[in-house]
Design a protein around this nucleic acid. Structure first.
Length: 899
DNA sequence: CACTCCCGCCAATTA
DNA sequence: TAATTGGCGGGAGTG
């Protein structure tokens, strides 16, 4: 108002005209127009006319911010303020009268204008909600603080809350990375899960006041009151609280923020009153929170609430209770978490967060595997959680594994944290479920299991590593198993499901069968970065697995393991992708690094396996069989990596390797060309029918083609059988950066001539061509599951018939399926070459440019139609009848059609 | 007066 | 040791 007046006034000086705006005019006049006192007097009568008063008014009206800004000399951003009058004011002011402003402005801007909420809006206005995956926006605290004209302290308040939701992550001192809301749904989902675990019971028991509670209360029994809960919490929280038990950070605004959000997510009404929240958040066991403490908590909650309000996640409301009206906040953000949740949910009504579970599973898996593995895993974790960990030393130490986990969880920033959280959640779930229950009930996984698989765990053990299986954890394994299982038993269904996590429809369609698989297939990775093509992988895995399994128990185990990861990845990818660009946002360098780190170890291990697999066995010798160990390792790795592609790959590799070997032998001659044929051959050869064939083009690798042969998964038969050896070669990890370089072409038809197979059928998905030639040769990038192994690498390899090259094959299939999945970021390290693909563009390219994720899904699945070579399919089917159903569908749809 | 929550001291962490 | 983070609570602005 004032502004207008002023503007008017200014020009006009006199303005007697409008009595209406007297007050305004007053303000205006005095300020700008030295001129017309008289007029002013006239009109303003009602109010205090003194010039000063006017000034004050103006000032207050105007934005203090403006002043500040001026002081700072920074320009305003109209944007931020847009909503409020402030913006206009500021703008106008700026425009209209700067000079005058100063005078007036001196006055303090109203408190509102300095509110954290407004500041947050300004802050948020600077960054896109859904930044392109490719571009990573770095935020300099100093810069932002100066731009926004506030002390840095205030920026911390904002950033800490945003960080808790993974909208940003800290990359370095004074530097944050903006991720946007791509992963918000995932984060919320995680928080919801964690919240359920943590607070479900509590809420119920403790606070009835609100509705919160008991939504579930206990789905998970485990949520045992405290012990578990805490872990969960920890998990949920990015911080390293675990590491440093009580360091100040534990109290950090971040954690509070997450907990606060959890309360909303857990609350039936989605409304939480401040006092209740404060009580709940004062974890102190005691209720006797002293008043001061309570007050402090409330203050903090206001801080958080202001930021969340700016994000549009909550709004302020008042609830009237007996006592009277209490301040409260209502959740107005998303309640459902489409991506993952949906899919999961579809499968499992229970609505548990599969992803989390899976993630956890993965983790456990790793853990369970071997002591070494554990370490590795831990390491990986730590690495995985670069941000926080880095930030805070704390977590670094390896304490008890558990703690580490937590710590890691805590540490992990966004991605990591998510992963961690998921893992934690999974863990809990697992525990609860331990048996089957959890899995079954909740997630799709269960369904998948049910349908296809029996018990993953059991499977795992089979391989030989009792350790592996046993130790680990059922829990961890569990999830994996599920995925795996399905794959085994129902390769098709599983794969399909996996692949399509994001797109339900697709999955459904794919499944053909209702199957169950849906859930299984995917592993949920918290971070988008990890996108794996689960579907592809799964399929591949399945195929491979199947064959493998048939052949070797070990393989089966591997397969499972592989699958699991794969699944996870898929989920993640799907989920991630669907919302926004899959890859990028979240995966910051840190992640990559983490991944890499984690992988590295893995990779190291892996490498051995593939090429050495035989060796490995012998060398390792430990346990029942070397092979087993290898597998285990892989598994572990995978589990570690799980989130990442790598993990998946590894597992796959083994399988793949084995398969490859066989196939390779048989195939060698054939090579890539006809993927189908190869596949078929392989299948034939192998006890199992490899569903996928991965065809690599020549050793040259200029392009890798993955074909999913007939069935869905064309396994990765790589032409390269020859290459197989190469596969054996350790995995290569490709830095995220590198990834981009890799051209992965998933989609469309194979580029490679090799695979005649492709037929057009594979749309993008089906055939994955990697034109990695460069990569292949140089680096081994590999898509995890699949096949991309670099042939070159170790040619020899396959000493072991079983393991050696195979990895590649497996991988390839995976790739193909998931082709999109590949993540560059995470280097894949699997023992085998893994190709990483970025789903985003590459995959998308083939598909639809736009929605990469969706596209993927659809493309994969849908494409089939396009794919069209029914014939090929048929062939495959013939070979592999098993899959035909869902799996094939997938394959067809997705990539398979290559044939 | 109660609700909000800004402000900035100053300790914990980091670099 | 200096700088960065961020807990914390006094106390002011608002209604």
């Amino acid at each position: 108002e004032n502004i207008f007046d002023r503007s008017r006034m200014a020009p006009k000086t006199p303005i007697k005209n409008e009595p209406i705006d007297l007050s305004k005019q007053k303000g205006c006049t005095p300020e700008r127009n030295p001129i017309t006192p008289v007029k002013i007097l006239d009109r303003p009568q009602p109010d205090p006319w003194t010039p000063t008063a006017n000034l004050k008014i103006l000032v207050s009206a105007a934005s203090p911010d403006m002043r500040d800004r001026e002081k700072k000399k920074e320009l305003f951003r109209p944007i931020e303020n847009s909503e409020q009058s402030d913006t206009p004011d500021s703008l106008q002011y700026d425009i209209v009268d700067d000079s005058t402003v100063d005078e007036f402005e001196k006055q303090r801007p109203s408190r509102k204008q300095k509110s954290l909420g407004l500041l947050c809006q300004k802050f948020l206005a600077r960054y896109p909600n859904y930044p392109l995956s490719t571009e990573k926006t770095t935020i300099s605290l100093d810069e932002v603080a100066s731009i926004l004209g506030v002390e840095r302290r205030r920026i911390y308040d904002i950033v800490n809350v945003l960080e808790s939701l993974h909208l940003v992550s800290r990359v370095a001192k004074n530097q944050y990375c903006w991720h946007g809301q791509h992963n918000l749904s995932q984060t919320l989902k995680m928080l919801q899960e964690a919240g359920e675990l943590q607070y479900g019971e509590l809420m119920t028991s403790q606070h009835k006041e609100q509705d919160l509670e008991y939504k579930f209360g206990e789905q998970k029994k485990e949520t045992v009151p405290d012990s578990q809960d805490r872990p969960l919490l920890d998990f949920s929280e990015p911080d390293c609280s675990s590491a440093s038990a009580n360091s100040r950070k534990d109290k950090s605004l971040r954690i509070m923020s997450q907990k606060f959000v959890m309360l909303f997510l857990v609350s039936k009404t989605k409304t939480v009153t401040l006092d209740i929240a404060a009580k709940i958040l004062i974890e102190e066991t005691q209720d006797t929170v002293d008043h001061s403490k309570f007050k402090t908590k409330v203050r903090r909650l206001y801080d958080i609430a202001n930021v969340l309000t700016s994000l549009g996640l909550i709004k302020k409301v008042h609830v009237t209770e007996e006592r009277g009206r209490k301040p409260a906040f209502k959740w107005i953000g998303p309640v459902e978490f489409p991506e993952k949740t949906d899919e999961l949910r579809e499968h499992c009504p229970t609505s548990d967060p599969l992803p989390g579970t899976q993630g956890e599973a993965c983790v456990q898996y790793q853990t369970s595997a071997t002591g070494k593995q554990r370490f590795t895993r831990h390491t990986s974790f730590n690495s995985a959680q670069p941000c926080e960990a880095t930030r805070r030393k704390v977590s670094s130490e390896p304490n008890s594994p558990r703690e580490e986990k937590q710590a890691s969880i805590v540490n992990s920033d966004e991605n990591c944290s998510k992963m961690i959280n998921l893992a934690a959640v999974c863990r809990q779930k697992i525990e609860e479920d331990t048996g089957n229950k959890a899995c079954d009930a909740k997630t799709v996984l269960n369904s998948a299991k049910n349908s296809n698989i029996t018990l993953p765990l059991s499977l795992l053990p089979v391989p030989g590593d009792s350790d592996f299986c046993v130790n680990p954890l059922p829990q961890a394994v569990f999830p994996v198993v599920q995925a795996d299982v399905p794959s085994f038993s129902l390769p098709i269904g599983i794969s399909s499901q996996a692949s399509h996590p994001s797109t339900p429809a697709a999955s459904k369609t794919e499944n053909g069968k209702p199957t169950l698989v849906p859930n299984q297939p995917f592993l949920c990775f918290p971070s988008s970065s990890l996108f794996m093509l689960c579907g592809g992988l799964q399929e591949n895995n399945l195929n491979e697995l199947l064959p493998t399994a048939g052949d070797l128990g070990n393989r089966s185990a591997e397969a499972q393991a592989a699958v699991f990861p794969t699944v996870c990845q898929k989920r993640s990818s799907h989920k991630c992708s669907s919302p926004s660009t899959p890859v990028a946002d979240e995966e910051p360098a840190a992640k990559k690094q983490m991944l890499e780190h984690s992988f590295l170890p893995l990779s190291l291990v892996v490498p051995k396996k593939p090429s050495e697999s035989p060796k490995a066995e012998s060398s390792q010798g430990s346990g029942s069989s070397a092979a087993v160990h290898l597998e285990t390792d892989h598994l572990d790795l995978s589990s570690l990596a799980a989130p990442e592609v790598v993990a998946n790959k590894e597992p796959t590799k083994p399988l793949g390797c084995q398969e490859q070997e066989k196939p390779s032998q048989n195939k060698d001659p054939d090579e890539p060309p006809p993927g189908n044929e190869h596949v078929s051959k392989e299948n034939a050869n192998q006890p199992f029918q490899p569903q996928y064939l991965y065809v690599q083009p020549t050793a040259g690798l200029s392009s890798f083609n993955f074909l999913f042969s007939a069935n869905q998964a064309p396994g990765a038969i790589s032409l390269a059988t020859n290459q197989m050896p190469s596969l054996s070669v350790p995995c290569v990890m490709v830095p995220s950066a590198a990834l981009p370089s890799f051209p992965l072409v998933c989609s469309p038809p194979f580029t490679s001539p090799l695979s005649p197979v492709p037929d057009g059928s594979f749309s993008a998905a089906a055939s994955t061509n990697f034109s990695m030639s460069s990569l292949a040769s140089t680096t081994p990038v590999f898509i995890s599951t699949t096949a991309v192994v670099t042939p070159k690498v170790s040619p020899a390899p396959s000493v072991d018939p079983q393991q050696p090259a195979q990895p590649a094959l497996h991988l390839s299939p995976v790739l193909t399926r998931s082709y999109s999945a590949v993540k560059l970021d995470s280097p894949v390290c699997m023992g085998h070459p893994m190709t990483l693909l970025k789903l985003q563009q590459p995959s998308s390219a083939p598909l639809t440019p736009k929605s990469i994720r969706p596209a993927h899904h659809e493309a994969f699945f849908k494409t089939p139609g396009s794919l069209g070579d029914p014939v090929a399919w048929k062939k495959n089917e013939g070979n592999q009848t098993r899959n035909a159903s869902s799996v094939q569908r997938r394959l067809e749809i997705s990539s398979t059609s290559p044939d």
